[in-house]
Design a protein around this nucleic acid. Structure first.
Length: 424
RNA sequence: GGGGAGAUGACGGAGCGGUUGAACGUGCUCGUCUCGAAAACGAGUAGGGUGUAAAAAGCCCUCGGGAGUUCGAAUCUCCCUCUCCCCGCCA
């Protein structure tokens, strides 16, 4: 959610920023007219309420029954008026909020204009688009041959875009999760384990709703939704709270499975494990002050890159342009790793500073000084990392000519010392 | 699933339907005292909205959430949510 004061005071600036996206600027005008109507309404209702309060108080002191009756009758009318006006006001407020929730975040000045993901500039790269000294296989071939991923069983159990990881495949993923959590712990993130289902409000707070409604799994009976990312529960961890300055910053890391219907990308990436309905992810999340949030974004990005570096993968970092940046984000870096089998870069992390966008939705504030007014926090999120694509890159990068896979050194302690995943 | 108890400010804990946005206590902040500290004493200590160039004053709303009764509700009624205790059931 944007700051209503900013919209009110600099509507042209807001429109101009939003115009950099394919975004309907009339929403801003809608907000403005709601806001004006709202304030007008508030003034008239409050005037009436003030009158009722003072007259009611006076009534309690009146001794003359006739005078008393006159005033009570008068206040009865005023009371009816007030409830009618209050009803209208509630409608106006609801209307305004509904539009506010539809408006995306504004971009940071660094964000370049661009049509789509092809126009995201690469700002950093480490390692090459390496080729192997033999014909590299895609991960689904390697995994099937080694018996570490079974696609048929996934389909049998839950349908397309599901798979079953087995043996050393399952173990490799679990080892990677463990290693990532430990690494981020050393980088200063406190581990949290959250529910994997949340109330609807949490999805609004994180900005998943309204946009991704069709992409989310939901249990009608309980009204709970499966999380599409750990970002969702963590965003609401401190919602409706006022944190103290000493508590900040708060850095969290969480492992969760993620559930996405992927209807928006039907037909894309159907082979392998690149895009499933259920996948695992380790997520980093930061609660920061406005002053520090962009410095924190750089740490977040470096911490994500460090995962790739230590795993020995080629990686590069892109700055997302206006055509590709997410709904809630002010500035986003994508970190991609090279997968030699398919010869493509895979996004394993997306690091965003959403500024106060989520904090306003979640009503998440902090008090800069004792006694000072509460201010909205800035929040940041970044994967560290998404598991399937990391596993793809590992398998395709570390495959050997015989189809076996060398385990990266950092993961070996987490795999009981296993150095190579070969055929049983 | 059945029965009972409860939800008030940072915390504890009062609160006949009418100067109660809320006693009292604790905590916290500032001040007096002190070489300093403790103690004691004094003052202050919610959030949102409106208002304002920005503040401030003033005004409005908020005592788990919502609806209602009333001239007036923290106090009365109804619904919901959550917490605690007992019994049953299942992991």
């Amino acid at each position: 959610m944007l700051d209503i004061k900013l919209i009110r005071e600099q509507p042209e600036y807001v429109k101009q920023q939003l115009a950099r996206f394919a975004f309907d600027p009339t929403l801003v005008d809608q907000v403005l007219s709601f806001d004006e109507a709202r304030r007008r309404q508030v003034r008239t209702v409050e005037e009436l309420k003030a009158r009722r309060n003072s007259v009611s108080k006076a009534i309690s002191k009146m001794s003359d029954p006739a005078e008393r009756a006159t005033h009570i009758a008068e206040m009865r009318t005023v009371g009816d008026e007030i409830s009618a006006l209050d009803r209208d006001l509630a409608q106006i407020e609801e209307g305004q909020r509904a539009v506010m929730l539809e408006i995306r975040n504004m971009p940071h000045p660094d964000v370049p204009d661009g049509r789509d993901d092809s126009e995201n500039p690469v700002i950093y790269q480490e390692g090459e688009e390496r080729t192997l000294p033999f014909p590299a296989k895609p991960h689904w071939e390697l995994a099937e041959q080694l018996g570490i991923i079974n696609f048929e069983q996934g389909i049998k159990l839950a349908g397309s875009r599901f798979y079953v990881m087995r043996g050393m495949g399952a173990r490799l993923q679990r080892a990677t999760i463990q290693w990532l959590l430990d690494l981020h712990g050393r980088q200063g993130y406190e581990e949290v384990y959250t529910p994997f289902v949340v109330k609807e409000q949490a999805l609004w707070a994180a900005g998943q709703l309204p946009k991704f409604r069709d992409n989310l799994y939901r249990d009608e009976e309980s009204g709970l939704w499966l999380v599409p990312t750990a970002e969702v529960p963590i965003t609401s961890l401190y919602s409706d709270e006022i944190l103290t300055a000493e508590q900040l910053p708060i850095y969290h890391v969480a492992y969760t499975p993620c559930f996405r219907k992927e209807q928006l990308s039907a037909g894309r990436d159907v082979r392998g494990i690149k895009r499933g309905h259920q996948f695992d992810k380790v997520e980093m999340y930061m609660f920061e002050t406005a002053e520090r949030s962009y410095a924190a974004l750089e740490k977040l990005r470096r911490d994500a890159e460090e995962c790739c570096r230590l795993l020995g993968l080629s990686f590069r970092t892109k700055l997302l342009c206006t055509g590709d940046i997410g709904f809630g984000s002010a500035k986003t870096y994508d970190v991609e790793v090279w997968a030699p089998g398919q010869g493509e870069w895979l996004e394993v992390s997306s690091c965003s500073n959403v500024e106060a966008f989520q904090a306003r939705r979640a009503n998440l504030r902090y008090r800069p000084e004792p006694g000072a007014r509460p201010e909205f926090l800035h929040t940041l999120n970044g994967s560290g990392l998404g598991l399937p694509r990391t596993i793809i890159a590992l398998m395709e990068t570390y495959q050997q000519v015989d189809g076996s896979i060398v385990v990266p050194e950092v993961l070996r302690p987490y795999m009981g010392g296993t150095e190579v995943i070969g055929k049983e």
